[in-house]
Write a protein that binds this DNA or RNA. Structure first.
Lengths: 159, 159
DNA sequence: TTATTTGCAAAACCTTTGCCCGCGA
DNA sequence: TCGCGGGCAAAGGTTTTGCAAATAA
């Protein structure tokens, strides 16, 4: 079903590429991020890690995420007033829609917008190193808030 | 030079429209925001307010900014890892470029991008309530960091 | 063995809040 | 006068850090 090299091997490679030691905590977190279909925050990852492993501190969650982020394996997002949320880096680059009623995150991707961003920056004498685009939305024709459930689904759209 | 109604009157109007009392602290902050050419954070506004007035607490800075934001007079931004930064709301709507080397903020405006955002959201069944677009950039051909100075200038660009 | 990592608890930060006094209307 | 608004200090939530013990290489 999955034509990938092998999840465990990929995780090991990621850690080796980062030039850090392979610890159980890092493997657990890497695994959680790989299977996460949402964008959990540090506390949520801590909860899941404890369920999967039993012993892992919140401090380690933060430290590990920082390491993985530096290695380019993890991306950190700060939606509006929330605490930081994380996801495994994956191609292609994408941006996010935040459903204001449910908190659900939807990913989308638009080459057109990316191109316009670079163009505008260039006109002002800049080169885009990275960017951040978040659309805070409501469902079309929605009657209103229906009850927030922790973001669990991710839809993807390309344009 | 300025065909505006009169700064003081406008500030009074803003407070009245917000349905709140006119206090010295609010007038001072409103004035600081009006003349600010940058995007100061709460601590910086506190510093400036003390220089201008002498007695105003950080708590009041935060409370006043919250009031003004609710009234639509002030906009709050959270660039990357920084603390919240504020600016007086002004038309047309604009987004920001953050110069990674100097920290300087440059505003720009692009109807094209706004339109694309709405279009993408619509295709996914959403309506954009508000959004956030930040381009973290480096000057084209820049040789590298030259020394961060507190953002003081604002350039504007329309497309 | 030896340099990294971890856990724990404390610290750091930014922002908000409780409480009582003072000022605006 | 009446009640909103302010100052102060303490609380809150998230993220980082110092230190000694544990562990990967």
């Amino acid at each position: 079903m999955e034509p990938q090299p092998d999840p465990k091997t990929r995780m090991l490679d990621a850690l080796r590429a980062a030039g850090v030691r392979v610890t159980n905590q890092r493997m657990v977190l890497l695994g959680l991020l790989a299977e996460a279909r949402d964008h959990p925050d540090a506390a949520e990852l801590h909860r899941r890690a404890q369920a999967a492993d039993g012993a892992i501190s919140l401090a380690t969650v933060y430290r590990t995420l920082a390491v993985l982020q530096r290695a380019g394996v993890v991306q950190r997002h700060s939606f509006d007033g929330d605490s930081a949320r994380f996801e495994q880096a994956h191609e292609p680059h994408h941006d996010h829609i935040v459903d204001l009623d449910t908190g659900r995150i939807v990913e989308f991707q638009s080459d057109k917008i990316e191109r316009l961003q670079r163009q505008i920056a260039a006109e002002l004498g800049f080169e885009v190193v990275h960017h951040r685009l978040e659309l805070y939305c409501r469902r079309t024709g929605a009657s209103g808030p229906t009850g927030r459930n922790p973001a669990t689904d991710v839809a993807t759209h390309s344009s």
